[in-house]
Structure formats: C-alpha cells, structure tokens
Design a binder for these strands. Sequence first.
DNA 1: GAGGCTAATGTCAGCGGCTGACGCGAAGCA
DNA 2: TGCTTCGCGTCAGCCGCTGACATTAGCCTC
Lengths: 216, 216
Amino acid sequence: MTTEFPAPAPGLRARKKQRTRDELLRAALELFTSQGYEETTVDEISEAVQVSQRTFFRHFSSKEDAAFRVQDLIESHFVTTVSGRPPGEAPLEAMRRAVLDAWNTVGEAIEALVPLELHMRTYQLIESTPSLLATHMRRSADLEEVLARVIAEREGLDVDEDPRPRLVVAAFSGVMRMTGRRWGAGNEATVESIREITAAYLDRFESALAADWHRG
Amino acid sequence: MTTEFPAPAPGLRARKKQRTRDELLRAALELFTSQGYEETTVDEISEAVQVSQRTFFRHFSSKEDAAFRVQDLIESHFVTTVSGRPPGEAPLEAMRRAVLDAWNTVGEAIEALVPLELHMRTYQLIESTPSLLATHMRRSADLEEVLARVIAEREGLDVDEDPRPRLVVAAFSGVMRMTGRRWGAGNEATVESIREITAAYLDRFESALAADWHRG
DNA sequence: GAGGCTAATGTCAGCGGCTGACGCGAAGCA
DNA sequence: TGCTTCGCGTCAGCCGCTGACATTAGCCTC
C-alpha cells in the first residue's frame, strides 16, 4: 500500500502541482457560483490562489475547462459503470442501474476534488449560463455517441448498421437531460435529491414504454 | 405599394446602412466557409468590406451572431408558418406541413440576404465547428420551447400542465436535428436535397409512430 | 551532498473578440 | 440654411488565451 507498483508514490513536486490544480479548481468554482461565470476573471481565480494567470492556463485549457472538470469525472465514471454492467441486462436496464449506481459511488470521487455541495451549485450554474449550457449540450451529444458505442458492443451490434443503440441512448439521454434540468431548477441541491428525481423519471419513462398504451 | 404605412420608404442613410450590413454578412460567411470560422478574424471581415472593426460590432453583436443571422431568419419563418397552420391539424401534422412549406418559401427570403448556396455551406460549417455546434444546439433548445408554446396554444393547453406539447416538439426536433446532421454530412448542399431528406425522415417517423408495432 | 537535469511556475509581449467614449461628417429635417 | 441625428472612424482598454524565455525548486546520479 505504501510503495507498490501501480502507485509509485508521487513525489513532492507532483503533489505540489496537484495541490495547485485543486486549489485553482476550487477557487474557480467558488467564484463562478458566487458571482457568476462571465463576471469572473481568470486573473481573479489565479490571484485567489496566489498564482500567475499563465499557471491557470497550464492546468486548464480554458476557463470553461475548469467549469466542466467535475463533469468530466462524473461522465467517465458513468461510462465505466455502464461498461461494467452484466451483459444479460437489456440496454435500458443497464443504463438505468448504472446511473443509479453511479450516483451512489461517484460522491466520494467528487469530494476528492471539490466539496459536493460546490459541484451541485456549479451544475446549476451551468444550466443557467447560456454559454455553459451550450457547451454542456454539445458535450452531452458527444457522451451519447460514446454510450451508443458501448451499448452496441454489449449487444454485438454495429452502431452504423443498427439504429437501435443510438435510439435507446437518445431516449435515455433525453430523460437524463430532463432530470438534470428539473433538478437544476429546484432548490434541493443534494445528491439524494438528484438520485430520487432520476429514479422517478426513469421509472415513469420505462413503465410508459412498457405499458400497453391502449389500456388505462 | 410605394409610400404606404408599413413601408415608410427607407431613406438614403437607412439604405446605406442596410447595404453595409449585407456586405458584412456576405463577406463573413464567405470567409467562414472558405477558410474556417475560428481562422477568420473580424478584422479580415471588416477589411473585406472596407469598414472599421467597430462597425462590424455595431451590426452584429458578436462574430457568432453573423454566423447565425440566416438561421434566425429561417427559424422565425418556420415559427410563423407553424402558427399559421389551420387549427384542425394535429400538432405533428401541422409541424410536418409547416417545415415542408417553409422550405418552399424561405428560399427567396434567404436569397435576399445571401446566396442560398452560401447559406448551405454555412450550415455545414455550423455542424462541423464545435463552438458553433454548441451554440446551435442551445438555440435549438430555445426554439423547442417556443414551438412547444405555439403548439400548446393551438391545442388550448397549458405548457406547464400538460407534457404533451413539449414531448411532441421534442420528438419532432429530434427528427429535424437528425435530418440536419445527415444533410450537413452529405454532399448534396441544395434546398431540394434537404427538403427530400426532411420529408423522408418525417414520413418514416410518423408512420413508425402510427403503425402497429406488433405486426410486420 | 554537489553537480547537473528537468519540470512547474513567473514574466512579458502580443493576438483576437469585444466595449465605451468621443469626434466627424453626411443624411435628414425645419 | 442651419440645426439635429445618426452611422461611422478612432482610440484606449479589458479579457481570454498563447508562445518564448527566464527562474527556481524538486530530483537524480555520482
């Protein structure tokens, strides 16, 4: 556990670097959420961490990059979880379980970067800031593509031949976007809250798909 | 027709202004499509029209604004057309007819701004430029909201009470986004081509919705 | 543990998008 | 004709972002 193979005990330099990165991220999100994204200057962020502006851009490719850093983590976490679902599950079921699972386990991973509550506020900010929302939507489209390929592979399908993987993912993503929006608009900025909303929407969605629409 | 109420015969100054605006738009799109959006400088655009950079920003709130000016026209044209459909038509049918109608009539309106073919190339550019695509998707979401309200009003529904308007519009928009993408990826950059693709996709979509899925 | 090597940061100069302030000259109007 | 308006040019400046070079502090080897 101390000096093993996959953990080559990062040296002081690496740790310092990581610390700077973390502090920059925290300061950025704190400033973004407290005074607005557009209103926050990269100079302000760097100054808050006592670092030059250039250093900020060495750690984050852009101001937006900082805003979406935690999302990166969450999304890759989700993709990994989906990939790990047993092959027997139907695609929608796998994604449903994966997203609920993910919300249970991703918390501590987030917490290692920034306080969970800070991320929740950041997400609300993304939903309410036009330029960030635009990027968020494009990123979601990218994620859909990745998911479609994962699902296609699970089912042994060619994503360019069979439209169903993309369709399932599109429907699922639609529901997820809806929940994200609904949650972002509300006041319950907690993980439990988003888990609940997600579960509720997915349940309704799936039962609506499965039910006989021509009966009650 | 000459000096009527809604057309107060624009004076020389107004015409000059309009001319400058048109030239700027054309030059911008021409440069965007020929050398790329990010690679084009506002200075280049202004210089091509022999005006100061400041003048560009007096006519366009941003570089992006120029890229989406024609889209603005098309979208408002489409919304107007939908609003004008007879109330008897079902929502999906109204939107289907509106979009096909719109493609027939919007051509000359576009042509009044820029050559049609230039707009077609611009659309393809939007689809293939990340930052523009992001904005495009956010704009589509805004348009969905507007459409949902139009549909809700047609049907005498409250858009915040009944989810169906938003659902229908979401499904319709999904199909439209798909056609836009497919068309943008292809080589047939003509209005006829996009009209054909649109009609084909909508037909398949509607029949898929209407058909009995449990029979061949 | 003294040397050189390297990686993280600071500094500086500069580009491109965008804005406010001010002045000018031409179009509109009395 | 003279006054007003308004479209435009100019200038200065902020902010996001980048390349180039200097500096220093961790590290690595002898």
